[in-house]
């Protein structure tokens, strides 16, 4: 093959290979904002979306900050979140100090409430034991056994 063609195809192939890498990185980027499993919330810079006023941020995801499942995120879509060792819980805990059906998070209006479901070792909202449905502020730690979860916007 002529030298020029060799040089051009050589550079062209490398460019295509990197194009593949960039295409893959684009997919990574669009996934970066998605919480585990649920709705992808890619920040859209082009369209001005109707946003809520700053003071009344509603929680959009649940984040496990301590315990075996630390780092897990679950997007909040309005459905109740059940927590416990039972297999059908939304957040399945693998913790000797948790009960089978330990606690539940439910949405009332625009607030999330935590409710203890008669667990053996109790549920704590920021050091106070949860006895009835209690409103969960943003970033307040909910302790269940060794697991700590928080609601983030």
């Amino acid at each position: 093959m002529p030298e020029l063609v060799i040089q051009l195809t050589r550079a062209g192939f490398l460019a295509l290979l990197w194009l593949f890498v960039l295409a893959a990185l684009r997919v990574v980027r669009s996934d970066l904002y998605a919480a585990s499993g649920l709705r992808a919330s890619v920040p859209n810079t082009r369209r001005a979306q109707p946003r809520q006023p700053k003071g009344a941020k509603s929680p959009r995801q649940l984040l496990v900050t301590q315990g075996a499942l630390a780092g897990t995120r679950i997007a909040l879509d309005g459905r109740p979140i059940s927590i416990g060792r039972a297999d059908d819980s939304t957040l399945v805990l693998d913790d000797d100090y948790a009960s089978t059906r330990h606690a539940r998070l439910v949405l009332r209006g625009s607030d999330w409430y935590v409710e203890d479901l008669g667990s053996t070792n109790g549920t704590y909202l920021d050091r106070a034991k949860v006895t009835g449905p209690t409103r969960v502020p943003l970033r307040a730690p909910i302790r269940i056994g060794k697991t700590v979860i928080e609601l983030h916007s």
């Binding site: 890498v21 990185l25 996934d31 585990s36 075996a68 780092g71 897990t72 679950i74 957040l91």
Partner: peptide, 17 residues
């Protein structure tokens, strides 16, 4: 690297130990 990263990301996101 990306292959390993996607695997580790799945490990972070999955809900059982």
């Amino acid at each position: 690297l990306l292959l390993v990263m996607r695997g580790l990301r799945s490990a972070l996101a999955v809900r059982d130990s």
